[in-house]
Amino acid sequence: MRLVFMGSPDFAVPALRSLVNAGQEIVAVYCQPPRPAGRGQSLQPCPVQRVAEELGLPVHYPARLRGNAEALAAFQALDADAAVVAAYGLILPRAWLEAPKRGCINIHASLLPRWRGAAPIHAAILAGDAETGVTIMQMDEGLDTGPMLMEGRVAIGPRTRLPEVHDALAAIGADLILKVLETNPAPVPQPDSGSTYAPRLSRGDAKIDWSKPAAAIERQIRAFDPWPGTFTTMGADQLKVLDAELADGQGEPGTVLDGALTIACGEGALRITRLQRAGRAPAAAADFLRGFAVPPGTKLSA
C-alpha cells in the first residue's frame, strides 16, 4: 500500500517503524520543521524526521498547509492510498484530507470522544481517569471528531506517570494501525455526548496552585512529567517538584507543616518526596533538606 506518514513527536515514531517493518511503502513523511533548541539554539529535527532520514525516507516539512497550493499539489502527486497521521501538529484542510484514496487515518491517544485536542494523555491522568487508550479514526474537518475505526485500552493506576502511559499508547497505536490498514473496518460515528477537550499545554500550566486539593496536585505532578513539569516558589528560589505523596495535615494552603516537606493544600496535604532547586541536581527530599533548611511555617507559592 502506498502510504504517506504524517507525525512529529516521539509518540509517532513506533507507528512509523511498524509500518516500515510490515513492508508498507512509505512514499513520503511529513513532520514539523526543525526548531531552534539547546544553548546554541541550532535547528534540531523532530523525532520523526530523524527516524525517517535514518530509514532513508523522503521528508517534507511545510510550515503551513492552508493556502499552500504548491505543497498541496506535491501531496496530491504522491497518489497515496492513505495517509497515516499521528500527532502531526498541523490541521489538515479538506483538500489534503481528500487527496489519498482512503483518506487520512489518525492515531489519537484517547478513547474518543473523551479528550479531543492536543494533550489527551496529560488530561486523562490529570482528571484521574481510570483508563485511557488509542482510537484509530477516519479524519474529517473537525477537531478529532471523525468516525472511529478501532481502539485499544490501557489502565491508569494511582501512581501511573505520563511516560509509561505515553509509551504504552504509542505501542498500541503502532499495532492497531496495521490492523486497520489490513482489515479496513467499517467506521463508527462518535457518540453525540461525552466529549471533552484537552487544550495545548504551556509552561504556565506547570505552576502549582496550593489552594487546589492535594489529590489534584499529586495528579498534576504525575501528568506533567517530564513536560511542562510542576514547580513552586519559596522566596527567591524556584523548586521543581518531581514527586510527592498524599499526607495527613491541614493549614493555610502553601504552608510547610513539618520538617518532612509536608505542604498544606486547599484540601488535605501533600508531602514532597523528590524535588530540584534551580541550577542543582534532582534530590530526594531528605537529601535536599540536609543542605537547604525549610522550617515549618515557610510559605510556598506559584
Rank of each mutant, 00 (worst) to 15 (best):
F5D: 00
G7P: 01
P9R: 03
D10Q: 12
V13K: 05
V13C: 04
L16C: 05
L19S: 08
G23P: 13
Q24E: 15
R35T: 14
R39C: 09
S42E: 10
L43M: 14
P45L: 08
C46G: 14
C46W: 04
V48M: 03
R50V: 15
A52S: 09
A52K: 04
P58Y: 08
R64I: 08
L65R: 02
L65F: 13
R66S: 14
R66D: 11
L72N: 07
A73K: 13
A74G: 13
F75W: 10
Q76F: 02
A77R: 13
A77S: 13
A77Q: 13
A77K: 11
D79H: 11
A82V: 07
A83L: 11
A86N: 08
P93F: 06
A95F: 00
A95V: 00
A99L: 11
A99V: 09
P100Y: 10
K101C: 04
K101Q: 14
G103L: 06
C104A: 13
C104N: 02
C104Y: 04
I105N: 01
I105H: 03
N106I: 02
I107P: 03
H108D: 03
S110K: 06
W115P: 02
R116G: 02
A119M: 06
A119L: 04
A119I: 04
H122Q: 15
G128I: 12
D129C: 15
A130Y: 07
E131R: 15
T132A: 03
I136H: 06
Q138Y: 10
D140C: 07
T145W: 07
M148F: 08
M150K: 14
A155F: 10
V165G: 05
D167M: 07
A168Y: 05
L169T: 01
L169C: 03
A170K: 01
I172R: 01
A174I: 03
I177V: 14
E182F: 09
A186F: 07
P191L: 08
S195Q: 12
A198S: 11
P199K: 08
R200P: 05
I208M: 05
A215Q: 10
I217F: 08
R219I: 01
R219L: 03
Q220K: 13
Q220L: 06
R222S: 06
R222N: 09
R222V: 08
D225T: 14
G229I: 05
T230S: 12
F231N: 00
D237F: 15
A247F: 07
A247D: 00
D248C: 08
V256W: 07
D258N: 15
C265P: 13
R271H: 09
T273L: 02
Q276M: 13
A278C: 01
R280V: 00
A284L: 14
A286R: 12
A286Q: 09
D287A: 12
L289M: 10
R290T: 13
R290Q: 14
G291T: 10
A293D: 10
P296F: 11
P296L: 05
P296K: 09
T298D: 03
K299G: 00
A302K: 01
